[in-house]
């Protein structure tokens, strides 16, 4: 009896400090202060539209904004360092775009980044770079004196090559890259240009890491089918790889939405939930066309089968036929000598 009492007493004596220790250890992790899953933090409402302006400014997060107008979307990042602009719209809209940018910041435009070489993405380079300043020279000269020619314009080298081929003499990229990624640091956050071909051979995603915002260019255009510019280095394989790369870069906050926001080349502000739907669509249509190609069907037979019919009602029959033809050609034509290849990230 005495032994039993001694035994249980000893166990209790040993257990009490352990219990106290467990309680101490458990406090930071189970103190009842943890919050349940919350609705994701979504962007605030758009700014009031200026009278007569075709643009709508959508705040995205922090100092980032999507300016959406009749043409390609523009991502603007503002801060103490100045203004960074991703894509510049068509040439004729530069003045209107600048007016909208000035609603967000009076500071100099320090960087222009281009996601591809299409006229609706680079057309405003001339108009906007002319009023900007190189950040490296901003403190060295009196007010009113422009930088060393113009605002630095960053893009993949294929963008510059293509613009030169098309005879452009101004608005060309001044800083190009040919590797997988080019990084700068601006307005307190890392900014990466990530090579992501598919629409053309020179597409870039632009990722603002602290803002957690990505400009996708024409690698993601939710209001239309992808445009595979096969004569400019585009391909369906690279396009799908880049879409999946974009998904790998985005992280939803809760309920498969929020978190990383994506400014598409055209269409609505998005998150991973939208891109996944778009990726599914491109994959489905690709898989259907590929199955028909593998059976030896001609392009006419494939188009007659209408493998994009469930999405043509979203976009258009004509656009669907064009997209199917681009996929068919991309799958059947020999790859260009310098066609981009990209590994899909795990």
């Amino acid at each position: 009896m005495i032994g039993s009492r001694w035994f249980f007493g000893s166990v209790l004596a040993l257990a009490m400090p352990l219990a106290a220790q467990a309680q101490v250890i458990g406090v930071p992790y189970d103190d009842g202060q943890r919050l349940p899953p919350q609705a994701p933090v979504l962007p605030p409402p758009p700014l009031p539209v200026l009278e007569g302006s075709p643009y709508v400014i959508y705040p995205v997060r922090g100092g980032t904004f999507m300016i959406s107008g009749p043409s390609a979307n523009v991502l603007v990042q503002v801060g103490l360092d100045g203004v960074l602009v991703v894509d510049t719209g068509p040439a004729g809209d530069a003045a209107g775009l600048l007016r909208e940018i000035r609603r967000l910041s009076p500071r100099p435009i320090r960087y222009i980044l281009n996601t591809n070489a299409d006229a609706d993405h680079v057309g405003g380079n001339v108009g906007l770079s002319g009023i900007g300043q190189d950040i490296g020279s901003g403190n060295e000269r009196p007010d009113g004196v422009q930088g060393y020619g113009a605002t630095p314009t960053l893009a993949h080298e294929q963008v510059m090559f293509r613009l030169l081929e098309e005879g452009a003499s101004e608005g060309l990229p001044t800083l190009t890259y040919f590797v997988a990624q080019k990084d700068i640091f601006f307005n307190g956050e890392p900014v990466s240009l990530i090579y992501a071909p598919g629409h053309t051979g020179g597409d870039s995603l632009v990722m603002l890491r602290r803002s957690d915002v990505i400009a996708a260019g024409d690698i993601y255009t939710p209001d239309r089918y992808p445009e595979l510019a096969l004569d400019k280095g585009g391909s369906i394989a690279a396009y799908l790889a880049s879409l999946n790369h974009l998904i790998a870069l985005t992280i939803p906050e809760f309920n498969q939405q929020g978190g990383t926001f994506v400014v598409p080349g055209h269409g609505r502000l998005s998150d991973e939930g939208d891109i996944q739907d778009y990726r599914d669509m491109v994959t489905f249509i690709h898989d259907r066309v590929k199955a028909m190609v593998d059976r030896g069907m001609s392009l006419e037979q494939v188009q007659a089968a209408r493998p994009s019919q469930d999405y043509d009602v979203r976009y258009s029959r004509e656009a669907g036929d064009r997209f199917v033809a681009q996929i068919y050609t991309s799958l059947t034509q020999p790859p260009l000598a310098d066609e981009a290849t990209l590994e899909v990230p795990e």
Binding site: A39, P45, S68, N255, L269, G273
Partner: peptide, 24 residues
């Protein structure tokens, strides 16, 4: 199921323009 939270605005605000973020 999955705890989605909806907000139903009763203050007369307009619906956002077309390119605003879409949610579930």
């Amino acid at each position: 199921w999955n705890n989605p939270v909806r907000t139903i605005w009763m203050d007369g605000r307009p619906h956002p323009p077309a390119n605003a973020l879409h949610t579930w």
